[in-house]
Amino acid sequence: MASAPARDHYTGRFKNSALMLFVVGCAALTVTSCSGGSGGTNAASTPTKSANTKPAPTKSADPESTAKQEVLAVYNNYWAEQVKAYAQGSEKGTNLQKYATLDALGRSRTDLLNLSGAGNAMKGAPKHDAKVTALGLDKKTPDATITDCLDIGPWQTIDRKTGKVLALSHGNLTRYITVVSAEKWPNGWMITKVEPKGRKC
């Protein structure tokens, strides 16, 4: 994404907490009274003791729903760190390695080298419409697939010296489907692969 060709190269390749419901039951304290007969005195009955009630058990969150939220949170963090890196033309000072494996990082690092070598950087940020479209929680290494409608139109290549926006070559897609793979490692979900499909969305 360094120059228009580098950006073409890039665009041709790629581009939140568990919900807990608490149900608490309570018993009403009722007081009844009765009156005496004619000529007698009125006497109030002893208040009825409230039943010993306990809060209903907390309902567990749906594991699949929780996993989907976690995966999308990691994907969003991955992109946030990537935007930082592309804005400065370097991975230095970012947390990309926290959210992506070497395979996924390889693509980003190649683009960053191209950007830096051409004296360019990225301005703005892409837009996303990402959904978890597959989930394998029963596997030895749980995995997930994210399908994203990636819009890189607002993410522009600029000349770092002049700040001038570099035009994108005519005909290149700026909004397309990207399929992303993720796996749950000991420290959490990781983005393992990013595959642009070259189809409009």
Score class of each variant (00 low, 15 high):
T41R: 09
Q82F: 08
W79A: 01
L96E: 13
W189G: 06
F22E: 10
T48C: 07
A134G: 03
N76S: 04
A87F: 08
G136S: 15
V165M: 02
E195R: 01
A144Y: 00
A125H: 07
G40T: 12
N16K: 01
Y99F: 10
Y86D: 05
V165R: 06
I177H: 00
A182I: 01
L19V: 12
K131M: 00
T11Y: 13
G39V: 05
K140I: 15
K49F: 04
W189D: 08
L105T: 15
K98V: 05
V23H: 09
S116M: 10
G171N: 12
L113P: 09
K59P: 10
A18P: 06
D62Q: 09
L102H: 07
T162A: 14
T46C: 04
A182Y: 01
L21G: 13
I158V: 14
N16S: 01
K59Q: 14
S3W: 10
Q82D: 08
V74I: 10
A167D: 06
N187K: 09
K54I: 08
A2N: 15
T30D: 03
K59T: 13
P126T: 10
C26R: 09
L173P: 08
T141M: 15
V31C: 01
T157Q: 10
N76R: 03
P186V: 11
A85K: 02
A167W: 02
T174M: 10
T174A: 12
L137T: 06
S108F: 15
A100L: 05
N120A: 14
A18M: 08
K161L: 13
S90L: 08
A167R: 03
A61P: 10
P186A: 12
L102K: 09
I146T: 04
A56Y: 12
D159C: 11
V179L: 00
K139P: 09
P63R: 08
D8A: 14
N187C: 04
D138S: 15
W155S: 10
L29P: 02
A167G: 05
S17D: 03
T30I: 00
L115P: 11
V74Q: 07
L173H: 07
P126Q: 05
R107E: 12
S33M: 01
K127Q: 06
I191H: 06
N76P: 00
G12H: 06
H170W: 03
V71H: 02
T110P: 12
I152C: 01
V132Y: 00
Y78K: 02
G153K: 05
A56E: 12
D159A: 13
G25L: 06
G198C: 08
N95L: 06
T53N: 15
F14N: 07
L115R: 15
D159I: 10
I158P: 08
K92M: 04
L112Q: 15
T133C: 03
S65F: 06
I191Y: 06
G25D: 05
G106P: 09
Y99R: 05
C34K: 04
A121E: 12
V23E: 10
P5L: 14
G40R: 13
I146H: 00
C26F: 05
P5D: 11
T162I: 14
M122T: 11
S50N: 03
A85V: 04
C201F: 02
